[in-house]
Every structure is written in structure tokens, then in C-alpha cells.
Design a binder for these strands. Sequence first.
RNA 1: GGCCCCAUCGUCUAGUGGCCUAGGACGCUGGCCUUUCACGCCGGAAACACGGGUUCGAACCCCGUUGGGGUCACCA
Length: 472
Amino acid sequence: MTVVTRFAPSPTGFLHIGGARTALFNWLYARHHGGKFLLRIEDTDRKRSTQEAVDAIYEGLEWLGLNWDGDATSQFERADRHREAVQALLDAGKAYRCYCTPEELTQMRETAKAEGLPWKYSGIWRDRDPSEAPEGVDPVIRIKAPLDGEVVINDLVQGEVRVANETLDDMVLLRGDGSPTYMLAVVVDDHDMGVTHVIRGDDHLTNAFRQYQLYVALGWDVPEFAHIPLIHGPDGAKMSKRHGALGVDAYRDEGYLPEAMRNYLLRLGWAHGDEEIISTKQAIEWFDLSNVGRAASRFDFAKLSNLNGHYVRSGDDQMLVDAIAPLLEETRGSALDEAEKALLCTAMPGLKERAKNIVELSDSASFYVAKRPLNYTEKARNQLDEDAAAHLRVLASDFDQMADWEAEKLEQHVRDYVDATDPAVKLGKVAQPLRAALSGTTVSPPIFDVMVILGKQETLARINDAILATNF
RNA sequence: GGCCCCAUCGUCUAGUGGCCUAGGACGCUGGCCUUUCACGCCGGAAACACGGGUUCGAACCCCGUUGGGGUCACCA
């Protein structure tokens, strides 16, 4: 049997982090088994569904690199098919029309609550004759669920879970206006799409029992279920927009790399021994539902950040240049030319070692393509004192005479200069002003590497700018 | 509240009855490296929620307690 999984988000405006992990697990499971990973948009609630929201889901998945097979299915467009399934149930006497109005139901619920009784639809229309139907009420269709016995689900993550049928009531399948409910639509769609494994958030576990009853009523095979635990915020409470439940686009904007997100999300709730750094290829090979934990986990930005740093450090130079280019152009206000991009690519090995995300990488790279004269940070300006000016003047003229513009030679020269200067000065006493002059900051890649990447002409020009700026 | 699920360092986790005086990672922390900042390296503090069983033996099995979470719509 070919494995078919699906990700079925409702278009709420963005692909949030929990959904992203659910999608990842479904994707990994399908890829691991050489099966299919399908996408279905649960857009039956027309009020909350917009094309922008659907596009946000597409973009989120694409950014994460979770490619789905075939075209995405729109649940809304399948309403006729959903009604057809209900008609079959009606014909078979497994569903019935209920003429209770929403107001009556609300009333019943409140009464039950007031008396401290558990609420459950009584099923009063279950066996009532249609001739007793009141005038002017559009009935809903409810399933005629079993009254006794129990539903047992062998969940691939949660294990055996069972619930007594008597605690479940006759759920609504078709609303008064004839539109299908979520419970109905999911079952019909999963069946029609040939879904073999329903992998979704823990919050759907109780839905699984009712859906099980529907599968049975429809005479269909019940798919395997795997309810994965939810992701909580750093404080242990349910994820909210305040802490983490952002759209994946927000993570992208904050400089996280898709491979880092995949790796982090994978390790949240799943493990393969002590492995921490797991490539996507390796993940596909190793992924298994039996290794998914059963407890909810908290979202930890520090760990994500650390992982992201790893992927930035080991990232391809050109890929990283492409990633920071838009940010650099944005802050500088002008486009980067090919020479500048090439320069950044050469500088990348020294840059990526020091950044833990794309935004930082962009910031730290900006001095390479900044226009002279540089703007100095306060700390950099403090480096450019009278002593510094003196050193820079000497070094500028020395550098001007140097034939070989190589890092080792430059470093050796500066070290010799430091040693020869009396009273003894530390290398840092000269290197920091140099760094300030060349980068405008006090933090940069090794300064002699910077000189080489910048080139002799630009280096000398920036040093002279700095000497002028010192006013000494 | 009813029903359901869960419970190992601060966090993510390894652990499936003896290999556990509980391992790894992030974070925290002491040190080394060093032209800055990182990276890297060496070291440290830090957990089996509690109480009963079962067993020669329990982090692992059972029961209870406590604590957390989910769900109870003509939303999805």
C-alpha cells in the first residue's frame, strides 16, 4: 500500500509554526515511504477564507521546501460530493434531519451547564417522525451515532486510545443551509483522496473518535491516525501570537534559514538517538512516527538560533550573498553591482562565521559595500584618537609602498611595526583603529583579510578618511 | 466540570526491567585560543513530579495523587 499523507490547513492568514511542523512530519513520512504528500485547503468557512490567506500557506510551504504532490484541493469546491455522501447516509437510515434551532440548542446547552450536567445533544429528532417537523425550520442533518460500545483507535503516536460511544453525541453533518461541516468534509475528502495516514495536531484527537464513527457509517476503511503533540510557547502556555505562533514568513524575515527551521521543528518532538544536526536527506531516511514523543514541547528561540547559526556557517557562499543582497540594497538604498556581489562572495567565509542569522549577516557585511566616507559607530570613533592617528599615518604610507597585497604580508608588517615601536604597543592598539577605519565598527572579520578583500586602493582611502576624521 | 492525552536537567531530548552513581544538545557558567567579534577546545552546576505496588532488580510495568495540556459549536 502506498502511503498518502496530507496537510490540511484552514486559511487563517498565515502558516503558523505548529502547522509548519505538522506539514513537515506529513511530508517526511510520505517521502520516507516513497508515498504522496497532498495539500488540502480547508476553506469551508467562507467568511474566513481569502485568496491572500491561501497564498500565504503556499508561500510558507514553498519557503520551507515542503513540496506537495499534485494540485492543492479546495475543500469548499467539493461541497456537492460531501452532500452526496450524506444523502447515502440518509438513504441508509444512518443519518437524520434535526429540526432544533440554534437558539434551542444554545438554550439546552445553558440549561445543562446551569445544572452542572455534561452537555450532549439529546438526539430528540433521532427517531421522531418527519411529519412532526415544525414549519419554517431548515433542518440540519445529523449522524445516527452508535449509542453503546466504544471507539478504539490505535494511534501511531498516542497508542491505544478509547472512548465510550455514549459520551459522543450525534454530530451535525450538514448545516441548515445545506453546507457541509468540517467533520463531514474531512472524512469524505481524506477518503476520496486516498489518505492512508492522518498526521495532525493533538487537538484533533477527540475529533478522531467522531470521524471514526463516520467512516464506519459510510462503510469506508479508517485510515491510520497519528496525533502529534502541540507546540507550546516558551512559557508553557498555548502558543499565541505574542510568543512564537508567528507565520513562517516572520521567521524568514528575522533571518532564519529554511533548513534550520526544518531541523529545529523536526527535533521538537522527535529524536533519533543523540543526533542534533540532521540534514533533510538524513531526516527523510530516519523519520518514523514511532519516535515521535507524546508530550507537548516548548518553543525555544535560543536553540533555533543556535541551529540557524550552524546552517549559516556551513551555508553556501553564493546562496548567502543572494540572501543578504536584498537587505543590503534596502538599507543602502541602491542596487549592488556584480563586482560588489563578487566581493561579498569572497568575504563570505569570514562573515558567515560570525552571524547567527541572515539579518546579522547582512549587517556585518554592509561595511564592505558602504560608500566612503564611512559612518563610524560611537565605539569605532573612540578608537580613532591621537595615538591611532599617528599609527595610521605611518602605516598608510608603509602600505602604500607594499608590492604584495596579501594578508600574511600585511600582518607581518604590522607586527614588525608594533614590535619596533617604542614604548611597546600591543597589536590590538593598532589593529582596532585599523578596524575602525576600514569597517566603521569595532567588530569585523580578521582585519588583514578585510584589507585584502577591500583591495589596496579602497583600504588606503578609508585609512585616510579615518585620519582626517580624527582631527589630529 | 465531563471526556481524552501527557509527565527525565531551565528548555529540546536519549533511555522500552539490569549497560544509568541517568547520556547528548541549547542555555547558564569557569578556563584555553585570540588583532575585535565569533567559531573551536577543555571543565562545571543542573533532571527521572509524588505515593503505593509488581519484580531478585524499576526512569522504564500497574494503580493512585498532584501538576500540565487538549476537547466539549449549524468553527476548522
